[in-house]
């Protein structure tokens, strides 16, 4: 198991040097960015079991602030990142306190409503570029603008952030808080009756999740250099995080990363192969996979892997037992 981890880690570190051109490096950066977003969502949606469909609101705030700092004050976009996180945390508290009174689908619906509301407000607000959106520095003024021609610097930046996020998640899932979250996911009422302060720990999960989703948004706009209401706050943004986390395995450490590694290249490859034909085949294949997965493997691919390895070790045990006998 350990050598597998080392090989995978090395593959991530060396990937940009193993591929021949910038398009693949960019796809790699896209994968890592999607993994950051989905892993951030996973803290609240996976571990704590609160299915938010409104995370685009944090992503959008994260994406807008750097470009606002640039277009209104001429600052390097990266200067807006900390402020974006602070605003996202503020939003998380304001949105979290009332919506956490709701359960299950009602919570999900409330988060959709809030995110859509934010999207519409942004789309009509001139200060933030209204429906047209905002641009970053197209050509780097100083290196602080983080506007690179090659996708490779973005790749390593994203890899570092993802590593930090996964390390934190790993630490948390083994901590007391991680157990509380899982207890809440299993059932709020029993968790409360056992003395877990449900509201507080749900809020902690939301705050962490919002901060990192906001960071994912900032990284997006640093790389793409452009943001508009649809690509920042659109509902598809939230849905993408959920699909990726669910595909890999929500509530597991590496599930979102696995989901991103599979889904983003699949999206890119189907689009590159069939997109030019204009037949819309991309979405048919993409949608088909999601339907099959939801029907047969709702626990995600890591769950499949876990069951497969359990089956394998059980088989080995029986074999050993039989030999012993």
């Amino acid at each position: 198991m350990r050598w597998l981890g080392i090989v995978i880690g090395a593959a991530f570190l060396l990937y940009p040097w193993l591929v021949t051109d910038d398009f693949y490096a960019r796809t790699g950066a896209d994968v890592l960015l999607a993994a950051i977003g989905a892993s951030a969502w996973n803290i609240l949606g996976g571990y704590a079991g609160q299915i938010s469909v409104g995370h685009a609101m944090f992503f959008g705030i994260g994406a807008y602030l750097p470009l606002l700092a640039y277009s209104h004050m001429g600052l390097p976009p990266v200067a807006g990142v900390p402020l974006a996180i602070v605003i996202s945390l503020g939003f998380a508290i304001v949105v979290g306190l009332p919506t956490f009174r709701l359960h299950g689908h009602y919570f999900s619906m409330a988060t959709i409503a809030v995110a859509e509301l934010v999207r519409i407000v942004i789309g009509n607000w001139d200060f933030v570029g209204a429906a047209t959106g905002l641009m970053g520095p197209a050509v780097s003024r100083t290196w602080l603008d983080l506007s690179f021609r090659s996708p490779i610097p973005y790749y390593y930046l994203f890899l570092a952030v993802l590593a930090g996020l996964l390390l934190l998640t790993w630490h948390l899932q083994r901590s007391r808080m991680g157990y509380y979250w899982r207890a809440i996911r299993a059932g709020e009422r029993p968790a409360r009756s056992l003395g877990v302060r449900v509201a507080r720990y749900k809020l902690y999960a939301l705050l962490l999740s919002a901060a990192f989703t906001s960071l994912a948004g900032s990284l997006y706009s640093l790389m793409v250099g452009f943001i508009d209401p649809e690509s920042g706050f659109g509902i598809l943004r939230s849905v993408e995080m959920i699909i990726i986390a669910a595909l890999g395995g929500a509530g597991t450490l590496f599930g979102p990363l696995l989901g991103a590694v599979l889904l983003i290249p699949l999206q890119t490859v189907t689009n590159s192969l069939f997109g030019g034909g204009g037949s819309g085949l991309t979405y048919i294949i993409y949608g088909g996979i999601i339907v099959v997965l939801a029907r047969f493997e709702p626990g995600g691919l890591l769950d499949l892997w876990r069951r497969a390895s359990q089956w394998w070790s059980r088989r080995r045990e029986t074999v050993t037992v039989r030999h012993a006998a």
Binding site: D22, F23, P151, S231, N271, S272, T282
Partner: peptide
């Protein structure tokens, strides 16, 4: 002419532009 589908998504537009240029 080689056509690429950007799906109306700015980020996909960038990566497809890269593909057209590099591949």
């Amino acid at each position: 002419v080689t056509f690429a589908d950007h799906q109306g998504n700015p980020s996909t537009g960038q990566s497809q532009a890269l593909r057209l240029i590099q591949q």
